[in-house]
Amino acid sequence: MSPRHALLAVLVMLVWGGNFVVIDAGLADVPPLAFLALRFALVALPWVFVVPPPRVGWRPVVAVGAFMSLGQFSFLYVALELGMPAGLASLVLQAQVIITIVLAAAVLRERPTRAQAVGATVGTVGLVVVMVAHGASSPLLPAVVMLGASTCWAIGNVVARAAGVASGLSMVVWSALVVPVPAFLLSVLVDGWSPTVDGLTQLSGTAWLSTAYTAFGASLLGYTIWNSLLARYPASAVVPFVLLVPVVGIVAAWLVQGEVPSPLELAGGAVMMVGVALATVRLGRRPRAGVTRDPAPACAGASPRA
């Protein structure tokens, strides 16, 4: 990968890693599911009128929207609202790599490589350590809800893989249409009509900035760059950059919110990321730019978004 493209990949990781702190800040004024509805309304509109739909039929688009977008981010936003530390959330979300490998083996009969099997095992051990360490000092429910986000993302990966598509910009835009109405209705059901409507009609400057960052920065700009890199280089050369997301997320939470994970949480996180690295980083000579892209990015966490 050229230095310029490597810097672009790092830029995307910085945007995605900082996304957790930005979302957490915006949730101070808006119910989480209402905030989610607003974000994806801006991801979808007016872009569906200029971005062509993905050529896979409507069922994969709806399924990806239901799991990767609505499911994943509903759990993520609710977990942050319940008190999940933003930095730790960026780490636990990467459990999707491990869950994707397991689901792909069970559902798609894709036999994991030895490195993926070892990585999934090591990553699971690290995740258990993180969960136990977090539960010893804080309520465990937010961390369990975060695992729901990881699971939904993993299911979305398997759906995208089965359909034979990557989560490109067109898929991001069109699948976003699935989110706003169900998220709004769920917000009304959970939080009530008045808090939902008041939250959306009385947005603070912080909430607007957070929405702009997540919709235009993390989703649209981030994926425009990310998918252009995946189109140019093998997934094995691009996807490992996702290992930077939890590092950026933890550092951003420390600098902005003063969040300091416990030593045991950090140790478990380090073990977990070693497992993720084993499952995603392929050693040896990489193909030259322009060689056909690895057709199985889903098992490597093809969509490391937040």
Rank of each mutant, 00 (worst) to 15 (best):
S2C: 00
P3Y: 00
H5K: 00
L7C: 06
L8N: 03
L11P: 04
V15Q: 15
V15K: 12
G18Q: 13
F20A: 03
F20W: 13
V21C: 11
V21H: 15
A25T: 12
A28N: 14
V30M: 09
V30D: 03
F35G: 00
F35R: 00
V43L: 06
P52C: 07
V56D: 04
G57K: 15
W58Y: 15
P60L: 05
V64L: 11
G65Q: 14
G65E: 10
F75Y: 14
A79W: 06
A79S: 08
A79D: 02
L80Q: 07
G87A: 06
G87E: 03
L88H: 04
L88I: 12
Q96N: 10
I99A: 10
I101V: 07
A104G: 01
V107C: 05
R114I: 05
R114H: 05
Q116N: 07
A117K: 10
A120N: 12
A120R: 11
G126L: 02
V130Y: 03
G135H: 05
A143C: 15
V144C: 12
V145C: 08
M146G: 02
C152F: 08
C152A: 07
V158E: 02
V165C: 02
A166N: 08
S167W: 02
L169I: 02
P180Q: 06
P182R: 11
D191N: 10
S194H: 14
V197E: 03
L200F: 02
L200C: 03
T201F: 11
Q202F: 14
T211S: 10
T214M: 13
A215T: 02
F216W: 11
L220F: 07
L220G: 05
I225W: 15
L230N: 09
A231P: 06
A231W: 15
V238L: 09
V239K: 07
P240W: 04
V242L: 12
V248N: 14
G249K: 14
A252N: 10
A253W: 09
L255A: 14
E265R: 07
G269W: 04
L278A: 05
T280Y: 01
T280G: 01
V281I: 13
R288G: 11
P297A: 05
P297T: 08
P304C: 10
